[in-house]
Each structure stands twice: as structure tokens, then as C-alpha cells.
Design a protein around this nucleic acid. Structure first.
Lengths: 220, 220
DNA sequence: CACCTAACTCACTAGTACGTACATTAGGAG
DNA sequence: CTCCTAATGTACGTACTAGTGAGTTAGGTG
């Protein structure tokens, strides 16, 4: 049905095959976990065969690590696009939190992979140099904002309570991550799907308000 | 080595066998996930045999659900012990958050089970009436605190931003849960084990400060 | 003490899942 | 056009894993 009369099927396409495997494998691992994922199922959902998975990746485990590396790379790409330097500290940290919220909203598969990786105590991430050597651009951003806010007198939390950039990053991430990662058990027990569209705007504002309230220091 | 000369081995012990299976199974499921857990491995780490697992629980899946039910029951027991009614709203919500922090710190296996259950979209929790029919005592507590704080004028967040008890519960839970659940990937990427003892006191204070700052409303 | 049933053991099976040996072909290099 | 290699397809092997059939024993009951 798609208009591709010139190339209806290309027989040889290493890059295409490789990236199709990664794409389908990401879905499979995200849906069923590492042990629950089936190499045969990944193969069945591709145009190519299982043999190619082993030809390109060698083993289920190395395929899984490759999926992780690709997913993390995409996230870093997203983070790199964040521009908040032009904003005053309060608005900068709020915007950063809201963007983190948006990112977590989009990257469902990535969040599942991180979740799964934590079940396995991050053993695969730790063995991947490509992952442990990733810089963390967002931390530098937070650090700069905290310094500016402290200097301007808008923020007091970091001074009084000893919270640093990593702590604030965790504060923001935890809210955004939890909303997506735990939506199913939370929904089953409290009867509310935090991840549903009707709650999106309110919770997005909430993470911004929360982090601003915290760094302003009225909780002490 | 333990002083039990009277009953060195009791041959028949249905309750003991059942609870030993649940205990070992909880560890196995928490460590490896549902698909990754091995029934044979559970059996090997017990005094009894694999056949007994099927005798008492029928299938791997029903064993897993039984583990979930037991774990949730223990959590509810912990929550029921929380007493904050005697405190003023600000201190009540802070104390509640700090207790949640403590509970998450203790219930590592439970947190892993919840994590795993979310990977599977809570399919097992949803099919267990014992779990979906659990009340949520902590929600009532939060509701009461929010009402008291709003009435006394200490809190404004709930009025101005439309956050309710479930939202505030999520705010607290997300921080406490994330710190434990994501400790491995977070540690691998940021070089800090949020779950290590040296960060405990600071992060415990942080969740209290955060929720108080939020409900006081200085983030708007 | 005899009996009966719940609790327990052992050996086994059917199916599944990762991985591979081997055959084949596309398509660029010379 | 020929050859050579990277890329691909087929069919299968091995090991593991959930689950079970059938027999055995502890220990309370009458």
C-alpha cells in the first residue's frame, strides 16, 4: 500500500537489519523483562530470521546490552536539547522539571528498561563502558541553576540542608519516573491511572511547584 | 548450633512448609523477576522438595501471587501502626513522609516485587481480589491531614493547585520508592548509591522538607 | 492397635528456548 | 563475466524448566 515501487524489497541491508532487530528487541525486552523476552518472538516480529540476531549480536545478553545502549543514547540526545540558561533560577529549575516530566512521558520503553535493569541490580549497565562513561549533562545544568539561585538569594535549600545537584536531580526524576513506572500497581490499588491524559497537566505543574517550593526552602 | 534439642526435626509441618516456601519464593522472585525465577531453585534452597510447591500452590504463577499477597499484607500491617493524629498538620505530614521513607528503607523485597509487577502491567495484582480489595489506610490519614492543614491555613497547595490526597501520597511515595528501586542504575550512572547509609539521614530529611514545602504552597 | 488421610518423596515427561552447523545468495571488486 | 565474501535462510541439537504420576509415611482418630 505504501508507495515504494522502486524498492519493494531490498535483499541486503545490514544497517537496516541491525536497527530493525534493535527496535523490535527493545519492545520485547521492555514488555517482558530480560528473562521473559523470547529471542524467537523477536525474530518472528521481524522480516529477517533469528539467525541474524546471532550473526549481529552473538547472544541474547549482548543484544540486550545493545538495546540498553541505544535507549540511553536517545535519552542523552533529548537531554542535550534542553535550554534553560536564559531563564532566572526559579523559572529555570521549574522548566527543567517540567521538561523532565515530558521526557518521561514519552520514553515509556526506556523507563521499563531501566526498571528491569534495576531488578538485575544494573549488572548489564555496569559491564558496559559505553553506558558508565556517558556524561550527565543535566547534572551540570542543575548545578549551575542551584549556584545562580543561591547567589541571588532565591534558593536556600541547598545551603541549609546540604542538598546538592544530584539530590535535586533525584527529587525531580523520582516523581517523573514513578508516575510512569508504577502506573499499573498504583492504578490497581488506588483506582487512579496517574499516567492518564486527564491527570497530565496537574501532575506536570505539580513537579514544577514541588521542586521550586523545595529549593526556596519553606519546608525547613 | 541453635538450642533445639527437643524438636531437632519435625517430619510433618504443613504451616511451616507453606511459609518456608513463601519466604524462599519471595527472595527468588524479588531477585530474578517472575520469568527469571526458577521453581527448582526455590526448591533447592528449602528443606522440602519441588513437589510440595505444586502440592500447596499448584503453579508457579499462583505461588507468585501468594508471595505478592503476603508481601502486601505485611506492608499494610506496617502502615496500620502509623500514628500522627496527635500532631499539628505540618508536623503530621512531615512525620508521615519520614515514616514512609523508613518503611521503604526496610521493605527491599517488597519494592522489587512491586517493580516486577509493574513490568508485567500489574496483571497478577489485578486478578487477585485479596490485593485489589485492600483498603488504603494511609490515604485516609493524608486526607485528614490535608483538611486540617487547609483549615488552619498552614497549607495552600491543595486549594490552589487541586492536588488531593492521592497526589500527595504519590509525591511522598515516588521519592521513597525511587531511592530504593532505582539505586543500582542511578548509582552506576551518577556514582552515588542513594541507598547507602551515609546518605540516609539527609535524604530522609529531604522528603519531609519537600512535602512540607509543597503543601505550604511556596512553589506557585 | 488398626486405619485413614494429609503430608511428603522420587523419578519422570513434554515442551520450550537459546544457540548453531550448514547451505545459499546478493552484489561489489577486479 | 567471474570470483569472493558478507549477509541471509533452514533445520536442528542440547539443556533446561514447569509440571506430574504414582507410590510412601507420619501421626491423629476411633
Amino acid at each position: 500500500m505504501t508507495a515504494q515501487p522502486a524498492a519493494p524489497e531490498r535483499r541486503r541491508d545490514p544497517d537496516g537489519t541491525r536497527s530493525e532487530i534493535l527496535e523490535v528487541a527493545q519492545q520485547e525486552f521492555a514488555r517482558h523483562g530480560y528473562a521473559g523476552a523470547r529471542v524467537d518472538e523477536i525474530a518472528a516480529r521481524m522480516r529477517t530470521t533469528k539467525r541474524m540476531i546471532y550473526y549481529y549480536f552473538g547472544s541474547k545478553e549482548r543484544l540486550y546490552v545493545a538495546v540498553l545502549e541505544k535507549a540511553y543514547a536517545e535519552v542523552r540526545e533529548m537531554e542535550r536539547a534542553v535550554q534553560v540558561e536564559h531563564l532566572a533560577p526559579v523559572e529555570a529549575i521549574r522548566t527543567l522539571a517540567e521538561l523532565a516530566f515530558d521526557h518521561h512521558d514519552l520514553l515509556r520503553d526506556f523507563i521499563k528498561l531501566v526498571t528491569i535493569e534495576n531488578v538485575h541490580q544494573a549488572e548489564h549497565i555496569r559491564t558496559s563502558q559505553a553506558l558508565t562513561n556517558l556524561g550527565t549533562p543535566v547534572l551540570d545544568l542543575i548545578e549551575a541553576i542551584l549556584e545562580a539561585g543561591t547567589a541571588s538569594g532565591d534558593f536556600v535549600a541547598c545551603l541549609t540542608q546540604g542538598a546538592d545537584a544530584i539530590d535535586v536531580h533525584m527529587l525531580i526524576s523520582s516523581f517523573c519516573f514513578f508516575r510512569v513506572a508504577n502506573q499499573h500497581t498504583f492504578g490497581a490499588l488506588f483506582g487512579r491511572d496517574m499516567s492518564a491524559p486527564e491527570h497530565r497537566a496537574r501532575l506536570r505543574a505539580m513537579v514544577g511547584d514541588m521542586v521550586v517550593a523545595y529549593v526556596r526552602g519553606s519546608g525547613a
